[in-house]
C-alpha cells in the first residue's frame, strides 16, 4: 500500500482504471443522452455546452457514446484476459508439471500458435463466426495465451523441484493438492502481471478490429468504432477521432503501467 503511494505514475494509472471501470458500470447514470439518439440538425457540432465532446455525423453525443464504449472495451478486456489466463495457465501447468510427452506436445502446439500471424488467425475466426463483441473476446483470448503458457511452464518446472513440494510429496499428498495448493499460488504473481498488461493489449486489439469494421458492429459504440467513423471527418471534425484516441491511449497506458508496478512489487527479489 505504501509502495503505490510512492509510485505516482502507478497511482494515477490505477485511479484512471477505476475511473474507466466506474464509467463502464454506471454508464446509463452518467451519460446525458442515449448513445444512439440522433439529433440531425446538430450533426458534427464541435464541443460546446450542450455536447461537451461534440456530436458525430448523425448528431449523436460523442461523450455518451464513449462512456458506453468503455463498457465494451472493459468487458472485452476482462473476458479476453480471463480466457487467456484460463488457457495459458492450464497448458503451462500441465506441460510444466507432467513433463515428458505432454510437455513436448503442448509446447510444440504453443510454438505453432506463436508462429501463426495473429491477425490472420483473427480474420480466419471472424470469417467463420459473425463479427461482434463475442467473436472479438474469443479471438483475442485464443491468440494471446502463448506467452503466459511459457512463463507458467517455466515457473512450474522449477517449483516442482522445490523442497516444499518434495516434502509434501513425501507426505503422500495428492497430485491435485500439489498442483492447486502448492504450485499454483506460487505462480500467481507472473499471472497477475501478464493479465494486467494483457488487458491493455486486448483493448488495443479490440479497437483495431473495430476500426477495420471486423469487431463490434454499429450501432453499438466502441472506441475503435467511433474512431473509424471519425476518420472521414478528421479535417472538419477532429473531436470525433481525438477523444476516443485519447481514451484508448490512456487506458492501455494505465494497464501497462499497473502491470509494471505489479511486477515490481510482486517480484520476491524486490520484496525485501
Amino acid at each position: 500500500m505504501k509502495k503505490i503511494l510512492k509510485n505516482k505514475a502507478a497511482l494515477i494509472a490505477l485511479i484512471f482504471i477505476l475511473f474507466v471501470t466506474a464509467a463502464a458500470v454506471f454508464a446509463p447514470l452518467i451519460t446525458p443522452y442515449d448513445p444512439s439518439e440522433q439529433n440531425l440538425p446538430q450533426r458534427l457540432s464541435a464541443p460546446c455546452a450542450q455536447y461537451f465532446l461534440g456530436t458525430d455525423d448523425l448528431g449523436r453525443d460523442v461523450f455518451s457514446r464513449m462512456v458506453f464504449g468503455a463498457r465494451i472495451s472493459v468487458s472485452v478486456g476482462v473476458f479476453a484476459v480471463l480466457l487467456t489466463v484460463l488457457i495459458g495457465v492450464t497448458i503451462g501447468m500441465t506441460a510444466g508439471y507432467f513433463g515428458g510427452t505432454a510437455d513436448a506436445v503442448l509446447m510444440r502446439f504453443t510454438d505453432i500458435v506463436l508462429c501463426f500471424p495473429t491477425f490472420f488467425l483473427i480474420l480466419l475466426v471472424i470469417a467463420f463466426f459473425e463479427p461482434g463483441i463475442y467473436s472479438v473476446m474469443i479471438v483475442i483470448g485464443l491468440t494471446s495465451w502463448t506467452g503466459l503458457a511459457r512463463i507458467v511452464r517455466a515457473e512450474v518446472l522449477s517449483l516442482r523441484e522445490r523442497e516444499f513440494v518434495l516434502a509434501s510429496r513425501m507426505l503422500a499428498v495428492s497430485r491435485l493438492r500439489l498442483l492447486f495448493v502448492h504450485i499454483l499460488p506460487n505462480v500467481i504473481s507472473p499471472i497477475i502481471v501478464y493479465a494486467a498488461i494483457g488487458m491493455g493489449g486486448a483493448i488495443l486489439t479490440e479497437s483495431g478490429l473495430s476500426f477495420l469494421g471486423l469487431g463490434v458492429q454499429p450501432p453499438a459504440p466502441s472506441w475503435g468504432q467511433i474512431l473509424m467513423q471519425g476518420k472521414d471527418y478528421i479535417y472538419s471534425a477532429w473531436w470525433l477521432s481525438v477523444f476516443p484516441g485519447i481514451a484508448i491511449l490512456l487506458t492501455v497506458l494505465s494497464f501497462n503501467l499497473t502491470g509494471d508496478f505489479l511486477r515490481d512489487i510482486l517480484d520476491p527479489k524486490d520484496a525485501n
Partner: peptide, 26 residues
C-alpha cells in the same frame, strides 16, 4: 521422511504452518 538443505524453501510460503502440518493427516 526427508529434511532438506535449504530451510527457506522447505515450507510453502503461502501456507500457514498449520496447513503444512495437517497434510500429514489427510
Amino acid at each position: 521422511q526427508m529434511v532438506f538443505q535449504n530451510p527457506y524453501a522447505s515450507l510453502n510460503p503461502k501456507l500457514k504452518i498449520k496447513s503444512s502440518f495437517l497434510e500429514a493427516f489427510y
